[in-house]
Structures are given as structure tokens and as C-alpha cells.
Amino acid sequence: MGGVVGLGVLLITAWGGDSVARAHSPTAPAGVQGDTLVGVVELRGDPESDDPVMRGAYLARAGNCVTCHTEEDAAEELFLAGGKPIETPFGVFYGTNITSNPEHGIGDWSEEDFARAMREGRAPDGSHYYPSFPYAAFTKMTDSDISDLYAFLREVPGVDRENIPHDIPWYAGFRGSLALWKMMNFEEGRFEPDPDRDEQWNRGAYLTRAVTHCAECHSPRTLSGGIDEGLRYAGTSDGPDGGSVPNITPHETGIGGWSARHLVRYLEFGMDPDGDFAGGSMADVISEGTSYLTGEDLAAIVDYLSSLDPIENEID
């Protein structure tokens, strides 16, 4: 409980409101009531904090843990308790409970268990995870970031909520086939900075490839379910929730006509250059994820995306 109280204090002091365009009010409630951490839902975290819990809270937003592991419009008490359906061409997957509940969540996981899930896509019992959990990206995270994320998740109050079984075809339900998927589509390894690029570009590359995992949704899939590397980031008309996902390479069929200012604003606030607002899955990604990032990190992501090779791929 001491850790929870400590986090509660941090929550109260965490609000900075570093930009007028932030989507999150610094006046949101924070504190501890019983064993429920009121305010954790709106915790922005801080990548520069001395506290690993605060850095981990930031990564939980950046990595879209909240987006996929919290049911839409759920009560605060169900924060990170799973249940959110993610419709894919390979079936409906349900975000799992990653609270500190030992039975249904990850409360009895060691840090090594957590790191193995993130790096290798393996559960504590050694079984393989479905790639709907984007470990193909998370494997590139630094050891310290994975450790910070674990520190934060340990502080999320446990929720006694059973996971919902995925609704997938029988052949996809055979987890042994996942070993084959991994052989074809997964390579474990850390992010390697490019010494020829500056710090901002490398930060953006790290966030985009390893943490925010944009390519997982913004790329078409091959028949085996891996990313079509020739069209990485070029969008797909067969994305999550049955919707189309835009091309985010700097081609005119993608984000070629967007200025850096507009791209940052979109990730921060959801508004596009025409004054329209994101809908569907991207609205969740923004409201629960990218809107919590610092202006520096958003600029870094935009810098990286703008440096990609432009790919012509018109998405309806």
C-alpha cells in the first residue's frame, strides 16, 4: 500500500500542463480511496522523472497499453483490466487484464516474466502470445524502459476480472502454430540508433518502432499475418475494427501534404489540417496514448515519420 500512496502523491504532483493544446486537464482528480487509485486513469507520467513508476506510466501511454488493455468507456476501477475487443482479419482478440491482480492479471509475474513477454512474446509458462500483442515492436525496447513499465504496472490496483477468450478460428487457436508465425515474422532484438542521424530523429525512430508500434496497424499484412515489409507504414484498407488505416509515409497519398505542426497537433489533439477530428481506433490511440506524450516526443515521432521513404498507396 505504501507504494500506492507514493504513487498517489506523485499523481497529484504530476500535472504540468506543458502546452495549452494538451487534451488533459491538470485539475483532474488524483489520490487514493481504499485500494483504488483514483486518478491513475489520467496519470500522464514523466519520461524525465527520477521515479521509475512515473517513467513507466509515461511508457504505458506511449506504448498504447491503456488503449488496448482498457475497455472503452469503462469505469476508472477497470483501468488496464482488459476486455476491449480488437477486431482483426484473423478474429477478435480481447485485451487482457494487466493489473496487479495475481489470478487474472500479472500480479504474480516477476520482472523476468514481464521482460520475456515483451521481448520474446512468451507467457510465464513458456507458451507463445498472439501477435495482436505487439511484441514484434516491444522486443526493441531498452531494458530500462521495460523495467520502468513493469514498475508502473506493479502499482496499478489489481482488478479481479477474468480475461475474455479470443474469438478466433480453430486453426489460429492452436498455439503451436504461433511458433511457425514467429519463425516467419518475428526477430528478437534491441533498437539500434543510427549514428548518422541526430538525437531527435533517433528518439522518434525508437518511439515509433519500439514503443508506439505505429506500423502494426498502419501496414498491410501478408497471408501469414506478418507485416508486408514493402508497404510498412503505407496503410491498409483491412485494419483493426474493420476500418481502413491511412498511409503515414510522406507520399501525397499519405501524410505528404501535412506540415509538422499539423502532424503534432493530430497526435496531441486529434485534429487534422481540415479541422476534422479522428474517429475509430485512432481516436482511442490519441485519447489514451499519444495525447499524453511530451511535445518533444511528438516532434521526434513526426521527424522520424517524415523521413520515411514515400510510398504510393491510396487507401479509401
Binding site: 474517429g279 481516436a283 485519447s287
Partner: peptide, 15 residues
């Protein structure tokens, strides 16, 4: 900003 958040909240679920 508050109005924009409201636009986004509605589009999130209904568009």
C-alpha cells in the same frame, strides 16, 4: 480545446 475533446470523444465511438 474542450470543444475539440468533445468532437473527438464522439468520433471515437460513433464514426
Amino acid at each position: 480545446i474542450a470543444l475539440g475533446d468533445s468532437c473527438g470523444a464522439c468520433h471515437d465511438s460513433f464514426r
